[in-house]
Design a protein around this nucleic acid. Structure first.
Lengths: 327, 327
DNA sequence: AGTGTGGTAGATAACGTTGTCACGTCGCTT
DNA sequence: AAGCGACGTGACAACGTTATCTACCACACT
């Protein structure tokens, strides 16, 4: 910038004015400056500009794992909103580890992002964000709520989703319905389990712990769970899988068994309709989740000062065949 | 930082020394400073620090669309390498639009990222990066090479991949093999088409333009292409789909038709093995692609000055049934 | 002629860090 | 006793911007 000013024979501030399109610069000056900029290939240093102005026009997105299609769809939506607002987006994955989440969130804050969209890791406590939020950072939580602080959150209707799945299976005559979900300390997993249990109980059926398996949905885990649920005098005839990973693991495992099981999965996934039978799912919309959270973040960034809110996004049951196998 | 210095009754520089763990600070001082930091909840301003030091410890990742599982796997790999090196990662999607790619890449450069990992948009020309690269930014291209400048690239063996697919189908007796790929101006699409053609010709078979359809793999496009290929006296008996989107579109369309077609898809995808028949694919490894590119970037960031290189990652044919349907 | 007034331009001080240098105080050697 | 090096410390400038303030000029108006 100094070089540009010298070459154009003008003051530093005039260059700044031209670069920022401020008014009251004579056309002759502006032209000289533009020529100098061109000649030197100058481009303004955004970091310095933002240091001076006190905001960075960046937001940070923290999720469990970008490579999971559910989260990558969410990330795409957040990114679009960010770009529409002229912001750049940092992305990082917590890998479901509270310490890593904290470290990355604080790294974002040290970079002075203006806002944060966070999918919390299981059993994270977000007290650590308190000073940052007091310092002006805006945090919006997605898919799972904040713990230990009051903050905006955008969640899916998890309870309603598994309730609907149970209703659907009951309607097709099933009375022994198993549930395989993610680790119980994960918010969504707990909520979905609750919907499953509540709907069973409300329907006058027993809630049988032995038909529930909560854990990281690895193939071995799912295999053992199915062995257990299918053994004994009253085996399950239907299954609810608590997320996309679990659904896929169940499908793989079931395909090696003689029994036919009715199945409803939580989370929609590509090709669910092409399998035979098509996989019925409780669909929720990661794009809506991400977009809503990002919109809320930017509303707050633009000065909106309403109370902390939790927005719930509807889920809907998509019947495709696997849940309609009758007893 | 000023406040901390005042509260601790020390100079600015001493605070800086404590924060950065520099030696030759007495333990008493350090303790006072740490107490003051704690009390004021001070955290250093990374932006200012980096302004001073001249590097940002950030890299930018530019891809076609984070929400595409292929690219999100790649993004996950790049992110991991970045984190391992203590860098933060900007992510953005070009949506296959050269102008948007350019705009985003330059936005990254204005933020003074230290490096760039780019999946180029179709028909982009990367001359625009020349001044940035001369200014010290390191750019590594993935999946598709740079155009108009010499730059490192990490590519998949696209030609070898479709060659293998053709060999596989020929071996099962097919002589009329169709090819449905992405738009011809996309590098990978063109390469894969070339592999298809070269292998046919080398095998002494004619290359028949009417069996080729190149375009954005929307359902209507694929439907029309299949109508065409299946009409006439010599319909295709086997098909190669040029990427994951095309493969899925073909599967959906074929499932509504009476004919049985042999199929090999390019790009592996989740559940390919669970369909019936399992979908044979030419698999390549987005994680390896991303990791290799990021590793190369960081090697250069650490001062490696070797010549511009192009690294090719092998592909491999995974037979699962759909390609083994015999004529 | 003196006085506003409006439009340009530049000098200077920040923003929050860190590198450089200079200063003072030890304790040790000669 | 003087000199020397090692250590601890802080003042200051610099990184590349922009906001504020002042200075200047030309023009029109009393």
């Amino acid at each position: 910038m100094n070089d540009v000013a010298r070459l154009a024979g003008v003051g530093l501030k005039t260059v700044s004015r031209v670069v920022n399109g401020e008014p009251r610069v004579s056309e002759a000056m502006a032209e000289r400056v533009r020529a100098a900029i061109e000649e030197l290939g100058y481009s303004p240093h955004e970091g310095a500009r933002l240091l001076r102005r006190g905001q960075t026009a960046c937001i940070g997105l923290l999720l469990e794992d970008v490579a999971n299609p559910f989260y990558s769809a969410l990330a795409g939506a957040v990114e679009q909103v960010a770009r529409a607002n002229g912001f750049l987006l940092f992305t990082a994955s917590s890998e479901e580890d509270a310490a890593q989440e904290r470290e990355l969130a604080l790294a974002f804050c040290a970079r002075r992002v203006d806002g944060l969209v966070i999918v919390p890791a299981a059993s994270a406590d977000h007290q650590y964000l308190k000073p940052e939020i007091e310092a002006g950072v805006i945090a919006v939580f997605v898919d799972r709520p904040a713990v230990g602080i009051a903050a905006d959150a955008v969640l899916a209707d998890n309870v309603g989703g598994t309730r609907a799945a149970v209703v659907h299976l009951l309607r097709h005559g099933h009375r022994r319905i198993g549930y395989i979900g993610d680790a119980a300390e994960i918010f969504t997993a707990a909520q979905r389990l609750r919907g499953y249990r509540d709907e069973l109980v409300d329907s006058g059926l027993p809630f049988d712990e032995s038909l529930v398996a909560m854990g990281h949905p690895e193939p071995q885990f799912v295999h053992a769970a199915l062995d257990r649920m299918l053994a004994g005098p009253e085996p399950v005839t239907a299954l609810i899988a608590g997320n996309n990973r679990a659904t896929v693991a169940v499908l793989r495992d079931v395909s090696t068994r003689p029994q036919q099981l009715a199945l409803v999965g939580f989370d929609d996934f590509e090709l669910a309709d092409l399998l035979n039978p098509g996989v019925s799912v409780v669909a929720h919309d990661p794009v809506a989740l991400g977009r809503t959270a990002a919109d809320l973040l930017f509303r707050r960034l633009q000065g909106y000062r309403g109370p902390v809110q939790t927005i719930e996004i509807a889920t809907r049951l998509v019947p495709r065949g696997s849940g309609e196998i009758s007893r």
